[in-house]
Amino acid sequence: MDPLEELRRICLALPETTERLSHGEPTWFVRGKKTFVMYADHHHDDRLGFWCAAPPGAQQELVGEDPERFFRPPYVGHRGWLGVYLDIEVDWDEIAEIVTDAYRVIAPKSLMERLPEA
């Protein structure tokens, strides 16, 4: 399975999400304006992953629990964003939950109401 294609499928399934290149990488936006997920194809290191918005405390908790799967991304890590490695065995259901949480952090309430029940 191509990680980019699967991540794209998950992101674009969310209401009013668009994709375009930002800083040379595929990036997903809510209503074309606010970024919630950025692909990272060896962008600042030799790893494949993505960066995403995260609920308060999630970055610290997940990186602390499993630094082989999660990391603090450059540039946006200080804002609580989460980095997720995709060059290891991936649980795509978990990735879908992480992406949906990222969307919830960024999207306006009117769009969150359109999400399926968790």
Rank of each mutant, 00 (worst) to 15 (best):
R72A: 11
Q59H: 07
A58D: 12
T17A: 02
I10S: 00
D87H: 08
L115W: 02
E89A: 13
I98D: 01
L12V: 08
V99I: 09
M38A: 07
G80H: 10
L62Q: 07
A58E: 09
G77H: 02
Y75L: 12
A102E: 09
L21I: 03
E89S: 14
P3R: 03
P26R: 09
H42C: 07
D46M: 11
F50A: 07
D66N: 15
P56C: 13
P55F: 06
A13I: 11
Q59S: 03
F36S: 01
A53H: 01
H44C: 02
Q59K: 04
Y85H: 10
G77F: 06
M38G: 00
T17C: 05
K33R: 15
I88Y: 03
A13D: 11
F71L: 14
T35G: 01
D66E: 10
L14Q: 06
F29E: 01
E117I: 10
P67G: 09
W81E: 01
D91P: 04
F71I: 03
H78P: 03
L115S: 06
S110L: 03
E89Y: 12
D93Q: 12
E97P: 00
T18W: 01
L7M: 10
L86H: 07
M112Q: 12
D91A: 10
V84H: 02
A96R: 11
H23K: 11
L14G: 05
S110G: 02
Y103M: 03
D87V: 11
G83T: 09
E113H: 06
K34T: 02
R20S: 14
F70K: 05
A53M: 03
E94M: 07
P56H: 11
I95N: 03
E25F: 08
V37I: 07
T18G: 05
L82I: 12
L115M: 04
T100R: 15
G77A: 09
P108I: 10
H42W: 00
M38C: 03
E61N: 04
H78W: 08
T17L: 00
H44A: 02
R69G: 05
V63P: 02
I10P: 05
I106S: 00
P67M: 10
T100G: 02
G57V: 11
D66R: 15
A40L: 12
E68H: 06
E6T: 15
M112H: 02
V90W: 08
F50I: 09
V76H: 08
T18S: 14
R8G: 00
R31D: 01
D45H: 14
R79N: 13
E65D: 14
K34E: 06
E6V: 15
R20L: 08
K33E: 13
L48I: 15
T18L: 00
E94D: 13
W28F: 14
R114C: 00
R79F: 10
E68Y: 03
R9S: 13
I88M: 01
D87L: 12
D66F: 05
L14T: 03
G32I: 05
L12P: 02
C11F: 00
E68Q: 13
L82W: 05
C52K: 02
D45C: 13
A53V: 12
G57P: 08
R20C: 08
M112E: 09
Q59P: 02
E6M: 13
V99K: 04
W92S: 05
R114L: 15
A40I: 07
